[in-house]
Amino acid sequence: MSEAVETSYGALKVMEEGEFAGWRFWEGDPFETRSGPFFYRREDDGSYVSAFRAEDRHMNGGGSMHGGCMMTFADFALFAIATDALAGDHAVTLNLSGDFLGPIASSALVEARGEVTRGGGKTIFVRGTVTGDGKPALSFSGIIRRLSKR
């Protein structure tokens, strides 16, 4: 990994090899690292896409991705989608809700895309969709709150 941007809550890094070479990820968030790792990048149209590869450890007892895993990924995606609105500021999740639309199997490419529906101030509203191999699995919306600089 290279191109690290250090913050008080971790380091933004870029993967150098593998399936997600060139994608960014946060190193230093113990829960997120253990849950994912999750990655994001800017698309040619200026939007952001988040992704990870589903593994057996992400599945529930029924053999589909655990809903908690999908929601954890959606929480990560909130911040990726809002990258430009955040302008480098730290923020926290105020609200996250989701509607489960379908299953995700192990080995699927899991992606999240969305949009900021209202931003620019301290409160940023985001909505998006998580897919597994291109099929809708979770519709989500969230509110994040920019924190004041100390």
Rank of each mutant, 00 (worst) to 15 (best):
A4E: 07
S8Y: 07
Y9W: 10
Y9L: 11
G10C: 10
K13E: 02
V14N: 11
E17K: 15
F20S: 00
F20H: 03
F20D: 00
F20I: 00
G22M: 04
W23K: 02
R24L: 04
R24I: 02
F25S: 02
E27Q: 11
D29L: 13
P30E: 07
P37I: 02
P37L: 03
F38Y: 14
F38C: 08
F39W: 01
E43Q: 15
D45C: 11
S47D: 05
F52H: 01
F52D: 01
R53N: 03
H58R: 10
M59V: 07
N60V: 02
G63P: 11
M65A: 04
H66E: 02
G67A: 08
C69D: 05
M70G: 03
M71D: 04
T72H: 05
T72G: 08
A74E: 07
A74N: 11
L78Y: 08
I81C: 01
A87S: 12
G88Y: 05
D89V: 07
H90R: 15
H90M: 08
A91C: 08
A91P: 04
T93Q: 10
L94C: 03
N95R: 15
N95W: 12
N95L: 15
N95P: 05
L96R: 10
L96A: 10
S97G: 15
S97A: 14
D99Q: 09
L101K: 14
G102C: 06
G102I: 03
A105W: 01
A105N: 07
A105S: 13
A105M: 05
S106G: 06
S106Q: 11
S107R: 14
A108H: 06
E111I: 01
A112F: 13
G114L: 03
E115P: 13
T117C: 12
T117K: 14
G120H: 10
K122H: 12
K122P: 06
F125S: 03
R127S: 14
R127C: 13
V130T: 00
T131Q: 09
G134Y: 03
G134E: 03
G134A: 01
A137I: 06
S139G: 11
G142P: 03
I143K: 12
L147S: 06
R150W: 10
